[in-house]
Each structure stands twice: as structure tokens, then as C-alpha cells.
């Protein structure tokens, strides 16, 4: 494992910890899109089916379990927790996420590495992850004001994607046959979605001001 991959996994982990901290400390999930969180839970559940059949490393297994567990816990909190669920901004979270599921599943049936049940679900999870942040970004845009922890959560998620791209560039030059086109192209699309958010994040950081997105 190279340093970029490790940095990517760590920023991914930090983003989830920031989100859990926000929900736990403030007993509130305001500004967080339940739809994005449900999509992530689906992404992890469909991608990590290999937990049952393949063993890669302790690190790999633990991280997968953490991602599945934390995403399910967040969805549970937002839907069922007596206090937390009251702060969910349902009227701002209106993205039609079922369309994303349908469209990415259709793409996975057309473009895959191998025509097997698991490989198609793997491709589906990669495509879905690429667009899963959209409901969250739309929600941020709608509310305009972004609270500190929510802003940091999205920032770390974006950083995770950026590090993964550096990781692929590194692997392309150091490994003989590193060709993972589906993951790389989807990863580029996914990172591009954050470009706008990053732009405003850095402006607010430079001016030492609260993060605000234009309406």
C-alpha cells in the first residue's frame, strides 16, 4: 500500500468520524442528507460482498466492517433515533436518489469487468459511489449556510477522492498491470463533483470566514 492510498483511506475514515461526532455531540443531523447516507450504505453493502469469500488483509477486512457498520449506524440514527431524527431537514433533502440507483445499476449491467453477479454489483457500487454525494451537495446548496462540522465532513470526503486519484497515478507507474478503468474513470467523475465545493471551501478558509455557498 502506498502513502496516497493510506492518506485516502484515513481521510475517508476521518470524514465518517467527523459526521459521527457531529451527530453525537450536537444530537443533530441538520444539514446532512439522509439520501446520500443511504446510498453510501448501499455502496458498501454491495461492494464488500467479498468479505464473505476473499481475504486480503486484516486492515482491509477491518476497514470494510467499519465502513459498513458506520454507514448503517448513521442511517439508523437519522431515521430512528428519538432525538436526532427530529433535526433532519427533510424538506431540503429532495433529490430523487432512486433515479441514481436505477441509472447506475443500468450502467453496471452494460459496463462491467466480468459478467458475474458479484462483478456487476461491484461495478454498480463504484458507479453509485461516484454520484452518491449529489443529494448532499444539492442540500448544502439549498441551505446556503453550512455548519462547521458538515463542511469538514464534505471536505474530508473530497480529500479522500483526491488522494485515491494520486494513488492510481502512483500505481499506474509502479505496478505492471494496474488497469482498473471502471474505478479510475468513476473516481475522476466523483472528484470533479467536489470541485465547486472545494472552490468555496478554500475561499472561506482563506478569508477566515464561515463557509457559504451561492444560492
Amino acid at each position: 500500500m502506498n502513502i496516497f492510498r493510506l492518506a485516502g483511506d484515513m481521510t475517508h475514515l476521518i470524514s465518517i468520524l467527523v459526521l459521527l461526532l457531529k451527530i453525537y455531540a450536537t444530537k443533530s443531523c441538520s444539514g446532512i442528507s439522509l439520501k446520500t447516507q443511504e446510498l453510501y450504505a448501499l455502496v458498501f453493502l454491495t461492494r464488500y460482498l467479498d468479505l464473505l469469500t476473499d481475504f486480503i488483509s486484516i486492515y482491509n477486512t477491518v476497514m470494510k466492517l467499519v465502513f459498513i457498520g458506520s454507514s448503517l449506524a448513521i442511517v439508523w440514527c437519522m431515521r430512528r433515533h428519538r432525538v436526532v431524527r427530529r433535526s433532519y431537514d427533510k424538506e431540503l433533502d429532495t433529490f430523487r436518489h432512486y433515479f441514481l440507483i436505477a441509472a447506475t445499476f443500468a450502467l453496471a449491467v452494460l459496463v462491467y469487468e466480468k459478467f458475474t453477479f458479484r462483478e456487476i454489483l461491484w461495478a454498480f457500487s463504484i458507479y453509485l459511489e461516484a454520484v452518491a454525494i449529489l443529494p448532499q451537495l444539492v442540500m448544502l446548496q439549498r441551505s446556503g449556510n453550512v455548519d462547521n462540522l458538515t463542511g469538514k465532513y464534505v471536505f474530508f470526503l473530497g480529500a479522500y477522492r483526491a488522494f485515491y486519484i494520486l494513488n492510481w497515478i502512483y500505481r499506474y507507474f509502479t505496478e505492471a498491470r494496474f488497469t482498473r478503468w471502471i474505478a479510475c474513470v468513476s473516481g475522476l467523475v466523483q472528484t470533479a463533483l467536489y470541485a465547486d465545493f472545494f472552490y468555496y471551501y478554500f475561499i472561506s478558509w482563506k478569508n477566515n470566514a464561515k463557509l457559504k455557498l451561492p444560492a
Partner: peptide
């Protein structure tokens, strides 16, 4: 035949 490398990323 061409073997796809293991999916070791998260």
C-alpha cells in the same frame, strides 16, 4: 488468459 488483479482497494 488475462487475469484481473485482486480488488484490494476499499
Amino acid at each position: 488468459c488475462l487475469q484481473t488483479p485482486p480488488k484490494d482497494e476499499l
